[in-house]
């Protein structure tokens, strides 16, 4: 019995070594896995918070409308009433949180209108489109169309 043990001793030593390796692995795992891992699923719960933490760049039209009531009134019922403010004026979260910090520029009426309204066959046929070469005689669009109420009455 003891000689059999002796002949297997090296195998037992190897077994202990492998076992020790496995134990070290589980200990390391216990220490190194982030605490919030698995909070909701197979990921770090804190990753949700990380994704939320990003500051917004676009304020959202609600924020604009809170101060600029006169524009809301001007746009009411018009063809552009549904267009978000920042679609033309650009991202303005900074301005919304501190009106003095970032002043929005006035969009250039010669180019901004064409971003949407320049003729393009891929655009839906019903969508109003123009070719500036044969429309408007080279004037700025805003000379005739008020951007907040574009229909000429």
């Amino acid at each position: 019995m003891s000689s059999r043990f002796k002949d297997q001793e090296h195998l037992i030593r190897m077994g202990v070594l492998l076992l020790a390796g496995i134990i070290v692995f589980f200990v390391l795992r216990g220490v190194m896995v982030p605490r919030d891992f698995g909070e909701y699923g197979h990921y770090r719960g804190g990753a949700l918070e990380d994704n939320r933490a990003r500051p917004a760049v676009y304020a959202g039209r609600k924020a604009c409308e809170e101060c600029h009531e006169e524009v809301v009134a001007a746009r009411k019922g018009g063809r552009h009433a549904a267009v978000g403010c920042e679609a033309c004026h650009g991202p303005l979260a900074k301005h919304a949180s501190d009106p003095a910090a970032a002043k929005p520029g006035r969009p250039d009426a010669k180019t901004i209108c064409l971003v949407c309204h320049l003729e393009n066959v891929a655009r839906p046929a019903k969508f109003p489109q123009v070719n500036p070469l044969d429309h408007g005689e080279g004037k700025a669009c805003s000379d005739c169309h008020k951007p907040h109420q574009p229909k000429i009455s």
């Binding site: 500051p55 917004a56 900074k94 501190d98």
Partner: peptide, 14 residues
């Protein structure tokens, strides 16, 4: 805080 999350604060207001 306001600067960083301006829109958020507005959202909170609403």
């Amino acid at each position: 805080f306001l600067l960083l999350s301006g829109a958020a604060s507005v959202a909170y207001a609403s």
